[in-house]
Design a binder for these strands. Structure first.
Lengths: 143, 143
DNA sequence: TATTGTTATACTCTATAACTATA
DNA sequence: TATAGTTATAGAGTATAACAATA
């Protein structure tokens, strides 16, 4: 049997926006992982950007998600290896343009539905107005 | 010279709480790192909990910050190596109690002031009421 | 000269499984 | 038997520096 005693005192932690944001984000990501087992939130974002911007180059994509060019190489290699993404050499022959494969499109169609369900579940403790308020305050914070 | 063309289309991303939380958290952590170069947000949280709960055991601390016992070992080893934390064997001789060293206390005194400044800077785009509202909504989300 | 993609390498943070000493 | 701390190991996820091809 386990006796845990009193909960720990938290000090100034609960008053820090960064701490509360981290807790909220962890909770949301936990739900994301539970509903979308086959991909991480970050990878989903990358597929979504390719979907919305067919032919985008690796560098522009990397910049959009705040990753280094060199980091993006490995990420795309894995997504290509999974048959989700295709790289085609551009007219500027230094660049690779990126597209979803048919399989990539099919996956995204499935995921988008499940992610909408995830979003409803995550926001279920908030009213529609509160959810909008939260999105607005987060946007204001980020600037 | 660099010509970047139009910004990427974002698709459903800006409507997802998880995405917006991640952006906000990244922005806040960037400011944290800039104002508190000598330690990460996570390590600060651990030192703060030891400060507020002198003698806490490794396992209880790990549980409080959602880390594995085995992960906490390395973290504490590093903090002890930096002369910030002391481990003392407990009456239950399986346990280690944790305390800040004088140096750890001194560091925390300095950091707390700088972190209050960081918090004011991060929240500077929000009114006091908006900051409270945001903390409240985050708490509601986390449940 | 500058940019794109690439490789090699390393660092941070974390988890799992198996071990030990104590209870 | 169960718990606390530990070790060995591995896996994400990321960055930096140097390079070749191309502009």
């Amino acid at each position: 049997m386990k006796v845990n005693g009193a909960p720990l005192k938290q000090g100034m932690l609960p008053g820090l926006l960064g701490y509360r944001l981290r807790l909220a984000q962890q909770a949301v990501f936990r739900d994301f992982s539970a509903s979308v087992a086959e991909i991480s939130p970050g990878r989903f974002g990358i597929l979504l950007l390719i979907d919305a911007n067919p032919g985008v180059t690796q560098s522009r994509l990397a910049q959009a998600v705040s990753l280094e060019r060199s980091t993006m190489v490995g990420v795309l290699h894995a997504l290509q290896g999974s048959g989700l993404v295709e790289r085609r050499r551009g007219t500027d022959r230094r660049t690779n343009g990126l597209w979803l494969t048919p399989r990539g499109h099919a996956l995204m169609a499935r995921l988008k539905r499940r992610i909408q369900a995830h979003e409803r579940r995550v926001a279920s403790r908030l009213s529609a107005a509160e959810r909008e308020q939260l999105l607005g305050l987060l946007g204001k914070l980020t600037g």
